[in-house]
Structure formats: structure tokens, C-alpha cells
Design a binder for these strands. Structure first.
Lengths: 201, 201
DNA sequence: CGTTCCTTTTACCAATTGGTCAAAAACAAA
DNA sequence: TTTGTTTTTGACCAATTGGTAAAAGGAACG
């Protein structure tokens, strides 16, 4: 928990986190081994444990770091902006995160799939509160006739699932699409989808 | 591979598959242990291995069984039906599968997350072909002006992600929604979403 | 140079892993 | 009841797991 001091500490700390992300995002916590992480980091296993007290500590460290960035885009949803553009922007930001940080998305997915043993409190606390707050905003937009009447919670779920899908199921997406870059065409498709769903008649 | 003969074999075969589904769908192949599966099945570990030659054999058996049911709903997309209703029906069927077979959905998700080592050939072969075929159908509907102009591949991805989300991220969904049944309201939301996206102006 | 701290390695450990084997137990057919 | 077959068990194994201890190697600094 103490902040790294020396350059070497700072560097290796980061190297291990990167390696842990690579490994844990593929196999989940239980499916990953310290040796895998060590090899990905280019360090020996005891050397890993010099920087982190345990396998779980690495995993927890990753989740903490992840959750900060994860909730950020939703925070940015501005109640005073143009509703359709705000929600479209949110979806765009989430899609960009799937493109630029697919391993983070997958790490989150494995944690949830395994029953969220580590972050369930965050889901039921911070996230739940944040979603409820933004749902109020969306309901306000609906009441004002600025967007179509949609279920706010499910709208948010829709944005999450549609965007994260391209990171979490990347292998499947590419198996079907072949060479083409999924994200370029996905951006176009999602913009059209959300605009159509949200724009009042 | 040989079919079970006696009643006991038939029963225990099924019991083991059920137990394997329960365990593998949570922790993935690598994160699960034979002891976990054995305990879930109420059998001893050596007894498991009397019915299946290895841990991997159980996992593969599950995937084979899964893939059959998994591709079925898309097969049912009828080129001669009413386009909007056909696609809506497909989405409904997929959502019902998320509700009734969430573990199957999660098993598929873990396999994909780990890079689809076992079923990649199926994705690049059978699934790819099937999707391409149905995309042709959808393109025909668009050309005939029966549905709005949407990217067929991404439309299919959208149906998959929006429906599977409620099974794969069940913990998160329930953490946010609390007591309420997610699937009832999700069905309403998704029907509205797809109708809005597909119905020609 | 020597000393002090930080870093890495070597050797090791107990527990768990997937899996084997032979013998015992349960069952079925006669 | 006897015999032959199927099912289950208990003891075991080599490999891998997360983790430790202690000593060796380095860098910094007077």
C-alpha cells in the first residue's frame, strides 16, 4: 500500500501490473498463476513477491486502478448538455475504451463472471449510486421531451453491453469479420443505433 | 465418445455434465478444479474419471453440447417471414436463453475471453458461414425497404451483446437493479429498441 | 575504499493439482 | 447362490501451485 520510492521500484511495480493485467484478463484470478505473471513481467517469482505480498494483492491492485477509470466516463455525463449528444458521447467514450483498453474490459468481465467476489461492494455501493443519479438525469430529459421515452437503467446497460462486447468478445468478432477493423464500423453503427433510439419523433 | 449404456452411466454422465457446467461457467477451464466438479456432482474424483477420461474431456463435452443449442436460434431466422418480427423474435429467443440458461451463456463467455482455444475453428467456420448467410438475408430486407438501413453484422452483434449481457453480467445487473426482475423489463426495453432501430421511417 | 540499503536469486516447502491403479463393493444374470 | 460385470473407493503419484528464508549481488554515498 505504501507508494513506491526508488526508480526501480516504480518501474517494476508498473511492469508487474502490466503483466498481471495481461494474464488475469485472460484467465481470471483463479485461472492465472504467479509463474505466468512472472514470466510476462520478465521477473522471477520470488522477485514478484518482493514487490507484492501475494497473488491476490496484484489482482486487487489492478481492480482498484481499473475501477477508477471505469466509472469516469459515466461521471462525465453532463446534465446540462444536449441530451442526445451527451449519451452519444458517452457511448463513444466507452467504445474507445474497448478499443484502447481491451484487457481492462476483459479483466472486469472475468471478475463479474466469477461472481464479483472482490468488487461486489463497489457495484452495490458506488456504482449503484452513480447509476441511480444518472438515471434521474435521463428521466429529466425524457420528461422534458428531449429524448424518447426509454428505461434509463436498461439504456445504460445497453451502452455498456454494446460497447464492451467489442473488447470482451474480440476473438469472436474478428473470427466473423475477418480482416476488417471492427471498431471503425462499430462506431458508425452505434451512433446510428443510439440516435435512432433516442431522438424524439 | 461412446454413448452411455446403463441407467447409472446415463444418470452419472448427466450429473457430471451439470456439475461441470456449474463450475466451468464460473471459473473457466483453467480456473476450475476436478475436485470442485466432483463435489458439485456428489461423486469422488476417481469416480469422475471413470466416466470421463480427463478434465478437458468434460469441458469439451460441454462445449459441443452448448454450440448445438447456441447456433439454433439464428438458424431459425426465417428469410420469408416479416423482417422486423423475425429479428425481434430472434432477440427475444436470445434473451430467453439468457434467462433460462445463464450458465451456458457464461461458459461460452469464459471460453471466448480465454481466446476461444477450443472452439476457434467453429467460430471461423460454421458460425462465420451462418452469420454471412443471415447477413445476406438482412441485406435483402434492407434493399427491399422492409427494414432501415443498418450494418447487418453489427446488428447481429448488437442482438448478441444486448441479450447475453443479462446472463454474463447478471451479478452487476442485480447489484444495480436490486430486487426487481431484470428480464421482464429488459424484454420491454429491447423490443422498443429494436423496433425503433429497424422500422423504416 | 567500506558500509548501508535495496534488489535479485537459489533453494526450498507444504498444499493442491490432474490423474492412476488395484482392490473392494455393488449389482445383475444365471 | 454363484458367477461375471459394472461401479466405487482408498491409497498413491509426479507436477504445479502460492509462498518463504537466507544468502548473494548491486547501487549509492560518505
Amino acid at each position: 500500500m505504501t507508494k513506491p520510492r526508488t526508480r526501480i521500484q516504480q518501474k517494476n511495480h508498473a511492469v508487474i501490473m502490466a503483466a498481471g493485467l495481461e494474464v488475469f484478463s485472460q484467465y481470471g484470478f483463479r485461472g492465472s498463476t504467479l509463474d505466468q505473471v512472472a514470466e510476462a513481467a520478465g521477473l522471477s517469482k520470488p522477485n514478484l513477491l518482493y514487490y507484492f505480498p501475494s497473488k491476490e494483492a496484484i489482482y486487487q491492485g489492478l481492480l482498484v486502478e481499473l475501477l477508477e477509470n471505469w466509472l469516469e466516463p459515466l461521471h462525465q455525463l453532463n446534465p446540462n448538455g444536449n441530451p442526445v449528444e451527451e449519451l452519444l458521447g458517452y457511448a463513444q467514450r466507452k467504445l474507445a475504451m474497448s478499443r484502447d483498453y481491451p484487457r481492462e474490459s476483459r479483466l472486469f468481465a472475468t471478475e463479474i463472471l466469477q461472481g464479483a467476489p472482490e468488487i461486489k461492494p463497489v457495484l452495490e455501493g458506488e456504482l449503484r449510486t452513480l447509476v441511480k443519479e444518472k438515471c434521474k438525469v435521463i428521466e429529466g430529459w425524457i420528461a422534458a421531451g428531449q429524448i424518447r421515452k426509454v428505461d434509463p437503467v436498461h439504456l445504460i446497460f445497453s451502452i455498456w453491453s454494446l460497447t464492451q462486447h467489442y473488447a470482451d468478445f474480440d476473438v469472436q468478432v474478428r473470427a466473423i469479420m475477418g480482416e476488417r477493423d471492427p471498431f471503425a464500423s462499430a462506431a458508425v453503427h452505434l451512433e446510428d443505433l443510439f440516435r435512432q433510439m433516442l431522438t424524439p419523433t
